[in-house]
Write a protein that binds this DNA or RNA. Structure first.
Length: 251
DNA sequence: CTTTTTCCCTGGACGC
DNA sequence: TGCGTCCAGGGAAAAA
């Protein structure tokens, strides 16, 4: 699913083809996409907007218009933004189509319909995003110190039994910080991971899934130490880890 | 207040 | 072949 590396890949692919383009025609096929706003209204409001920039905040794709408005697109589980020369026929999962002034189109498809499009008026986008998102892990401002401050005072396990932040010493905190940035950069370098639905805007697949060492490998021997990969559920989410290489500090 | 669980939603995998 | 059941999970909302 689209995590930060996937969303950043989408942003990078869309930026050169969207900046300067005008939204000529907008069709929102799934009324849930703009919830709770009226899809017809949002579609009508988008017509005529000219793209000034394509940014990213967390896992939101932020399409900024010259008018000062912004379209906040969240792909959630299975959303994808595709840039096409011609809109293909017949796709039951197509949720929106934006025809651009150069004859190309932006097609949004989303199998599981969790994704959202929010049209923010001038000045609304920043407060909206600030209220929902933490700090950008690839920004300069994201330092080991800042990460420590974020985790301080929190009692929740960082991914349950794998890492208990109460026991993160200076070196472990540094390792976590480096690990976060290294993993995200590796993912971006490979244009994200395609497990099933994720596509880049030109329809291609990411390659990061080939680098996964534990994800989806329950029972298989760790390729580093040979111990079987384990799977647990952390905060409601499936979590795989190597009990040998990713040491557990119980309690 | 913090943390966990439920819910949304669909299609693929699996058992019978 | 055709069901019924389970699972995947981002993030909001509800529950604990």
């Amino acid at each position: 699913m689209p995590e930060l590396p996937e969303v950043e890949t989408v942003r990078r692919r869309l930026e050169p083809v969207l900046v300067g383009r005008r939204f000529e025609r907008v069709e929102i096929l799934d009324p849930r996409l703009t919830r709770p706003e009226d899809p017809l209204e949002v579609a009508a409001e988008l017509v005529g907007e000219r793209v000034e920039a394509v940014a990213r905040r967390g896992k939101y794709v932020v399409i900024r218009f010259e008018s000062g408005r912004a379209l906040l697109v969240h792909l959630r589980m299975t959303g994808s933004l595709l840039h096409v020369d011609d809109v293909p026929e017949e796709d039951p999962h197509r949720r929106a189509v934006v025809e651009l002034d150069d004859g190309t189109a932006l097609v949004y498809r989303d199998v599981r319909r969790f994704g959202t499009w929010l049209l923010a008026e001038p000045g609304e986008a920043e407060p909206y995003l600030d209220a929902r998102l933490g700090r950008e892990p690839l920004a300069q401002a994201f330092t080991t110190k800042r990460l420590g401050e974020t985790l301080a005072g929190r009692r929740a396990p960082v991914k349950a039994a794998i890492l208990d932040q109460r026991r993160l010493d200076e070196d472990e905190l540094r390792a976590l910080h480096r690990g976060i940035r290294a993993a995200l950069n590796a993912g971006i370098a490979r244009q994200g991971a395609t497990l099933r639905d994720y596509r880049t805007p030109d329809g291609g697949s990411g390659r990061m899934q080939h680098e996964f060492k534990v994800y989806g490998r329950e029972g298989e021997p760790c390729e580093r130490c040979g111990r079987p990969i384990e799977k647990i559920r952390a905060a409601g989410r499936g979590t795989w880890f190597c009990p040998g290489c990713q040491h557990i500090t119980n309690n």
